Computed example of a mutant assay.
Amino acid sequence: MFGFTEEQITNFGMTFGVGAFIIYMLFIVGQLAYESKAGKFGTFILFVVLAFGMVGFIAKSVITWWWGL
C-alpha cells in the first residue's frame, strides 16, 4: 500500500496511532476529573487508576527501544 510494507504500516500504527490514542484517553480522564469536580487528590487518583494500563504499553516500547529489538 503506497509503497510501504506491512511491517512499516504496523510499526507506524503501533507507535503513533496508539500514542495518539493514549493522549486522547488522558484528555478524557482529565475531562472526567474536571466535570466531577474531583479536586487535586481525586484527580490524581483518577489519573493513576485509569491511566495505569497505559504504563505497560509505554514500558514495553521503552524496553524494546533500550534493548534494540
Rank of each mutant, 00 (worst) to 15 (best):
Y34D: 09
V48D: 03
G53R: 06
M54L: 14
F57D: 04
E6T: 05
F4H: 02
W65A: 15
M14D: 11
I23P: 00
V62Y: 12
G68N: 07
L46N: 06
W66C: 12
I22A: 11
T10A: 10
G42L: 07
A33Y: 00
I58C: 07
F27V: 10
A51P: 00
G68P: 03
M54Y: 12
W67I: 14
L26G: 05
S61M: 14
G68W: 06
A51T: 09
A38S: 13
F57S: 06
G68L: 06
V29A: 05
A33T: 08
G39A: 06
A38W: 02
Y34F: 13
F12K: 03
F12M: 08
F16A: 10
E6G: 13
T43S: 13
A33D: 03
E35D: 13
A51K: 01
L46K: 10
G19H: 02
A51E: 10
I22L: 15
M54C: 10
G56W: 06
W65L: 14
Q31G: 07
V49L: 14
K37C: 06
Y24N: 08
E35W: 10
V62C: 08
T10V: 09
F21N: 07
K40W: 13
G53F: 14
G42H: 04
M1I: 04
A20M: 13
L50G: 03
I63E: 09
G17T: 01
A59W: 13
F16K: 08
T15R: 08
G13Q: 04
A20S: 11
I63W: 07
K40L: 15
Q8S: 02
M14V: 07
F27R: 02
K37D: 14
G17S: 02
T43A: 10
M54D: 09
G53Y: 11
M25P: 00
G17C: 01
V49G: 06
V62I: 14
F27T: 03
W65R: 15
G19T: 04
V49M: 15
F41L: 15
F57W: 10
I58D: 06
G42K: 03
I22E: 04
I45F: 11
W67M: 15
V29H: 01
I9K: 05
F52V: 10
T64N: 13
A33F: 01
E6S: 05
T10N: 08
K37F: 11
I63R: 06
V62T: 12
W67S: 15
F44V: 14
G13F: 04
F21G: 12
T43I: 04
F16P: 00
I28T: 09
F16G: 03
M1P: 03
G17Y: 00
E7A: 09
F21R: 07
S36E: 11
K60T: 10
V18G: 00
F47M: 14
T10S: 09
F4V: 01
K40P: 04
I63H: 07
M14P: 00
L32G: 08
W66Q: 14
I9Y: 02
M1W: 03
T64E: 12
E35A: 10
V48A: 12
V18N: 00
Q31K: 13
L69N: 12
L32T: 09
G13W: 02
L26P: 00
V62E: 09
S61A: 13
